[in-house]
Design a protein around this nucleic acid. Structure first.
Lengths: 282, 282
DNA sequence: CCGTCGTTGGAACATTTATTCCATTTCGTA
DNA sequence: TACGAAATGGAATAAATGTTCCAACGACGG
């Protein structure tokens, strides 16, 4: 008779096979710490080289983790798969969905002719994609969180961005408006500033890229002098704003020719806006 | 004795193995047209499914091309590889370089916590990337070329875009200015339109997405009535503008939540602007 | 100190996949 | 139409890769 029912145990309990990379990662976390030595090595290696699984053989994964192939097999089974092949299929499917015919099409567009408009699209798409990847790779989460806190505490958010940065600033103004966050867009209409609207308790979000625009720098300095916190959205050297900004969010935007795609900047700005709105509501 | 030296022939001449996807494509073009039927089928299929090679087996490629596996093998050898395995290695390497740790990092950011700002960044980056891929995949080159011609012939380009589309319009205004193309941004400042500035010989570029903004539709209709060509930058159904626009450039922008990343729209707009400027100069 | 049980490594086996080979068909040319 | 060269399809073979199994090991409790 079943005198004692064993506590459900992640290792022994039969689990259904992860169907998405997401659930795979969850299970990986769940298992972490309660695995024997060799299997833990597998888990560690797999966790840090998730994408390489799709293209590796058992032997390669095993070598990477510093274990014999059979250990990798056991690991796959503990993760809920019938074996390595089944686990690999998951990652291959994810990979092929990620790049369907995109790369081919891009190459075709580029090859279509150097002067062709479609070749330009290919270049800008490529630049944008690289920028976004760089953003995801290099994002400093701590700085981002700081920026969110500062802006969420502000009574009113002031937005500064001219010339190349103006589209970003104006989009932020639109988004903040939709989200019910009080925001002022410092456009240059009528040659007037909105300096007098900067009040204690407010904060400034300054968006500028090299070559930094005079107006933005001046406004940032002005805000700083009045004791208002300044968050900067800028490119890595960040030379112009290092003195005046409390928090510097830097984005590397890959240019094509003299123009930048703004993709990464907008993605970051949008995230910032939504996060700020969410924080204010709680 | 070697009585006659045969003309160098792409098929029989021994070629060294392509080392990059680029050279692979070149060789593919070189061979095009001078291949026997089955091999041509292979070439066609491979050309349009370049990326799928990395993850397919010989049998799968063969089935895709509608030929027996042995034909695929011959094709690989004609392309300069020792066999399918060697050819596949090329694409696998390209694929693993393309997604270095990006996917892992993205997943980490997402996993960092649903409410975390960094998770938002991951979502927006993902949305933007998908949008750009969709743009590259679905771009209609003919329509784009038409749009370029129309705008290049215009004396002045009028830009209409409000609310969500305003950042795009304003960025275009900036870019056109830099490129020396006469352009008017129809912002709504002071509640005035710039209708009277629409003159014969001009063209309108209307940017709007569902739900289409009244002002943009009205301006497009107005321009149409005066006989000016209208180019629309909009989303696929394009319902609102189908009557009034001469040329419709459609972009699918993946949203996250209620907000769109604008990445694809901006990439397309930028390409359009640069192509127009280039065409005007010649 | 001994026995047990979970863990480990490697060798044997099974399966999938690539590659070669050759009989047959097709195509171009005389 | 007949000939030879090229192309083709499929079956046979080779290679690689995945999977299983078992003997050996080591940690732990009695």
């Amino acid at each position: 008779m079943e005198a004692e029912i064993p506590m459900p145990d992640a290792l022994t309990e039969p689990r259904d096979t992860p169907r998405t990379v997401e659930t795979f990662r969850e299970r990986l976390l769940e298992l972490n710490g309660q695995l024997p030595r060799r299997l833990q090595q597998c888990a560690d290696h797999v966790a840090t080289h998730l994408d390489s699984i799709a293209l590796s053989t058992v032997a390669q994964v095993a070598q990477g983790a510093g274990v014999p192939p059979s250990a990798v097999m056991r690991f796959c089974q503990i993760m809920g798969f019938s074996g390595f092949a089944e686990m690999q299929r998951l990652f291959r499917e994810a990979l092929s969905r990620a790049a369907p015919d995109y790369a081919t099409r891009l190459a075709n567009l580029k090859a279509g002719g150097a002067g062709q408009p479609s070749a330009l699209v290919a270049e800008f798409v490529e630049a944008g994609r690289q920028s976004m990847e760089a953003l995801a790779r290099d994002l400093n989460e701590t700085t981002l969180n700081q920026a969110v806190v500062i802006l969420a505490q502000a009574r009113t958010v002031h937005l500064a961005g001219f010339r190349r940065s103006f589209p970003v600033a104006s989009y932020l103004a639109y988004v903040f408006d939709k989200l019910g966050v009080p925001a002022v867009l410092h456009d240059g209409v009528a040659g007037l500033g909105h300096r007098s609207s900067l009040r204690p308790g407010d904060a400034l979000l300054a968006i500028t890229f090299a070559p930094y625009s005079e107006e933005t720098l001046a406004l940032a300095a002005f805000a700083r002098d009045r004791g208002l916190p300044v968050v900067a959205l800028t490119d890595p050297p960040a030379s112009g704003l290092s003195g005046v900004a409390d928090t510097i969010l830097s984005v590397t935007e890959i240019d094509f020719g003299a123009f930048r795609s703004l993709s990464a900047v907008i993605a970051l700005a949008l995230s910032l806006a939504v996060a700020v709105a969410a924080r204010r509501e709680t």
